[in-house]
Simulated assay, not measured.
Amino acid sequence: MFALRSGRNRGMAGAGLLGFSYSDEGLVLPRLLRRPARVLARLTSGEIVPPRYSATIMTATFFAVTGLYGSYVGGHIPTVVQAITSRTGFAVDQVRVTGHRETSEIDILEKLELDGWTSLIGFNAETARERVASLPWVQVASVRKVYPNTLEVQIEERKPFAIWQQGRELSIVDAAGRVIAPFNGGRHAGLPLVVGIGAAQAADAFVKKVKGYPELAGRVKGYIRVAERRWDLWLENGVTIKLPERGEDEAITALLEMDREEGLLARDIKSVDLRFSDRVVVQLTPDAVVRRAKALAEMAKARKSAAGKRI
């Protein structure tokens, strides 16, 4: 049959292809195939009787292996794991979120992408953390699995520093000048207003400097960056203070001294220009200009009248 008779006529066997040999009695199998061949021969000859239902078991095993291989090739193994483990007590049914103030809990849950049958075993916490960290207010995020069925999400949010106006757009920025989110009013209305190109990035140090002068800081409504070189201060009463590019502290000190002595900032003026080292230029409002012109005309008329009487 297979010429496996304990090596008889071994010396007469000739070499063949793929490791097979040929002898006078037939084909001689390689050593590794001889035992499986003997088992197969005994099965076909009836010496070995297979167990009952062995054909059914082998068929089921074949289909199971085929299904697993197909799932592997098609990339469906994670889905299969999710489906099995979620129905055995590992489905996520509780999420604990901490550290959020500006970020909506609904937005966080959406980033977790839970579908009601998500298994904690197959859940990718790192991928979920990256999605949560992409939310506008989130600076740092962590997602932790607590078995058997809980997710813990902890976030650290960015700190709002100012409202940045560029053109007609208003945005909330942090101290580094990075935009966090559009400004829509609410509790952030009390943040400092910084205006102009480059204002968001340069505002932190300058706002801190102005806060060192409480008499002035309490009146400031906006910080305006001019040509990315210097600052103007816009006061609550509409007066604009034009500061120099260098020597801001000296200019502010001189301004506050004039205000204490002459009440400069309470007058009907439009701006105070402190950019020149040798003089201070004060611009009146249009109404003040009219009143001043009228007053000067009346003074001139009075002097003329007095001079006529003396003649």
Score class of each variant (00 low, 15 high):
Q94V: 12
L40I: 07
R229Y: 03
G308M: 13
E130N: 06
L296Y: 05
R38N: 10
I311C: 08
L18M: 13
N9I: 03
R34K: 14
G99I: 08
I155K: 01
P244C: 12
L68T: 07
M1A: 08
D115R: 02
R291F: 04
R275N: 08
D273W: 09
L29C: 09
G14W: 02
A300P: 01
I121V: 15
N124P: 07
A175E: 08
S54A: 14
L243V: 11
K304N: 05
I106Y: 11
G212D: 12
Y53P: 03
Q82D: 15
M258K: 15
H100V: 13
T79D: 15
R260E: 15
F161I: 09
S277H: 14
A203Q: 07
L43C: 01
Q94W: 10
R8Y: 03
R129F: 01
A288Q: 12
L33F: 13
A205G: 06
D249T: 04
G167R: 09
A217M: 03
G75I: 05
V272I: 09
G238F: 08
L18C: 10
I197R: 06
R178L: 10
Q82F: 10
V290A: 13
V207I: 15
W164G: 03
F62G: 01
A189T: 13
V272E: 06
I241D: 00
I197W: 08
A128G: 01
L29I: 10
A91E: 05
V65C: 11
A175S: 14
G196R: 10
S277W: 12
N124Y: 01
T150Y: 00
L264P: 06
G196F: 07
A176S: 15
G67P: 03
T240V: 08
L112A: 03
A217E: 09
P36L: 07
A37G: 11
L151N: 05
A181W: 04
D268K: 10
K211A: 12
K304G: 15
S71P: 08
E236H: 09
A133V: 12
V179G: 03
W234G: 05
V39S: 07
T127G: 15
G116K: 00
P136V: 11
D249P: 05
V73A: 08
G122C: 01
L255I: 00
G190I: 08
A266L: 06
I224H: 06
E298I: 01
W234C: 02
V179M: 05
R267T: 09
E126M: 01
M58P: 02
T127H: 11
I197H: 10
P192M: 06
I155P: 01
S171T: 13
Q166E: 14
V220L: 10
S23V: 07
D278K: 15
V195K: 03
L265N: 02
T103I: 12
L135I: 02
F62E: 02
Y69A: 15
V153R: 03
V290T: 13
A205F: 03
W117N: 03
R5E: 09
E248F: 02
